[in-house]
């Protein structure tokens, strides 16, 4: 028996994953798995009861995260992870609800739900893996594709203006907003930890390489090249004005924690308001 066998060591991530579903479906060089590891690490460090953590995903590459994490997890429909999460949170306010999905899912088809959940300050954490395109369907142009980048439905390059996710989140009312690249491993973990602890609506945007589609169509090399490229182009500016966070093709990426503020959550505001108006007639909810 070798020493290695005696250790019976297991990958610490296995505790957080449905190992009967690994290997996952993501391409070689895709960064989503790395973001999942950062998330697992955040769960570990947060020391929260994993029974209380729920992951909801929509559809797409990142939408598959719900199927791999060993938590109560829901793989919902395209764009609807946030309202699904809203229902879960309101039905059982003890839950720590995490929406883990992609840019196309949350900001394309599901953009309306995002802004409204942020406006209400619904107490959920949104982890958005931004790979600048619709990857699962073959690399189509997205609401996040920078101008000039090529996509399968923008074969001559994208000319539409794109969303700046932190700017949108702040304008809509989010109480925690951060952006990192997938290579900012420990900073992603820290932001997820902070967001999980935050009562209110949080967004963590993680810029992640899509090697098979976005990188290939734009001749940006392999996953490693892209991971490195995003990291090298990033400049950490905590508290940066979210109006300055637009992402241009091949331009610099401002990352950091931009917003971290206090505001009553939906349920807190509801309980407070109703108690004030209805007094004893009101049955306090979830407290």
């Amino acid at each position: 028996m070798t020493k290695e066998d005696r250790l019976e060591a297991k990958n610490p991530s296995e505790k957080f994953l449905r190992m009967d579903r690994i290997p996952h479906i993501w391409c070689p060089g895709c960064g989503i798995g790395t973001v999942v590891t950062s998330f697992n690490e955040a769960l570990k460090k947060s020391k929260i009861d994993l029974d209380d953590v729920v992951v909801v995903s929509g559809i797409g590459c990142t939408g598959r995260v719900a199927g791999y994490v060993k938590l109560d997890s829901f793989h919902s429909t395209h764009g609807r992870a946030i309202p699904f999460a809203t229902g879960l949170k309101l039905a059982n306010p003890n839950l720590n609800v995490v929406v883990f999905s992609g840019d196309g899912d949350i900001f394309g088809i599901g953009g309306n739900h995002f802004i409204h959940a942020a406006r209400r300050n619904m107490d959920i954490t949104v982890i958005c893996v931004n790979n600048f395109n619709y990857a699962m369907t073959g690399g189509q142009v997205a609401a996040t594709t920078p101008i000039g980048a090529n996509a399968s439905t923008a074969p001559y390059g994208n000319f539409e203006f794109s969303f700046s996710l932190p700017y949108l989140a702040e304008a809509a009312g989010a109480t925690y907003v951060a952006r990192w690249t997938a290579l900012h491993l420990r900073r992603v973990t820290k932001s997820i930890q902070e967001a999980l602890a935050k009562p209110g609506f949080s967004l963590i945007e993680v810029i992640t390489p899509c090697v098979t589609l976005y990188a290939r169509r734009n001749r940006l090399g392999d996953g490693l090249n892209l991971l490195k490229y995003y990291y090298d182009k990033s400049v950490i500016e905590h508290g940066a004005d979210t109006r300055t966070l637009d992402i241009s093709y091949q331009g610099k990426l401002v990352v950091g924690k931009f917003i971290d503020k206090e505001k009553p959550t939906f349920l807190h505001a509801m309980n407070e308001h109703m108690t004030k108006i209805l007094g004893d007639k009101f049955v306090k909810y979830g407290e």
């Binding site: 909801v56 829901f74 919902s76 429909t77 609807r80 309202p83 699904f84 999460a85 809203t86 229902g87 879960l88 949170k89 309101l90 039905a91």
Partner: peptide
């Protein structure tokens, strides 16, 4: 969709 979430 919120109903489905709430039911679960």
């Amino acid at each position: 969709t919120a109903l489905i979430g709430a039911a679960w």
